[in-house]
């Protein structure tokens, strides 16, 4: 009886060992995944461009932080965090250097700092 049981268990184990490595389904990569990764890249570019702006760098320097360090650390953020920042950048007024724009930029800078140095 015991031998039958152990035989069963060992057979089951063999099946599992063969089957498990292939349990990740080989499949086509969906178009939605391609869109998502393209979007993630676009968001990263947007944040990088934002951090390269002169007025933004000035904000960082005023706060005693290095824009270069911020850029490095932004690279380590997840796609979701980057999206959060990119979304805020989208809401910035298009105008040049009114006081309203300066405030809006400062808010986005604050979000970057919060995400990067948290």
């Amino acid at each position: 009886m015991k031998s039958l049981f152990s035989k069963l268990v060992s057979q089951l184990l063999v099946v599992c060992m063969i089957a498990l490595p292939f349990s990740t389904q080989a499949a086509l990569v969906g178009t939605d995944q391609v869109v998502a990764s393209a979007q993630a890249q676009a968001n990263r570019d947007k944040v990088r461009d934002f951090l390269s702006r002169g007025d933004v760098q000035k904000h960082f320097e005023t706060l005693g932080l290095s824009p270069a360090t911020a850029k490095d650390r932004v690279n380590a953020l997840t796609d979701q965090e980057i999206q959060q920042i990119a979304g805020k950048i989208d809401t910035l007024p298009a105008g040049a250097s009114s006081s309203g724009t300066a405030w809006a930029v400062l808010i986005v800078v604050a979000i970057v700092i919060w995400l990067v140095w948290k």
């Binding site: 292939f22 990740t24 080989a26 499949a27 990569v29």
Partner: peptide
């Protein structure tokens, strides 16, 4: 890259 698991699974299946 992030699709490595899928690519590996495809490769394994072709080898099989």
């Amino acid at each position: 890259g992030p699709l490595l698991a899928t690519s590996r699974a495809t490769l394994e299946e072709i080898r099989r």
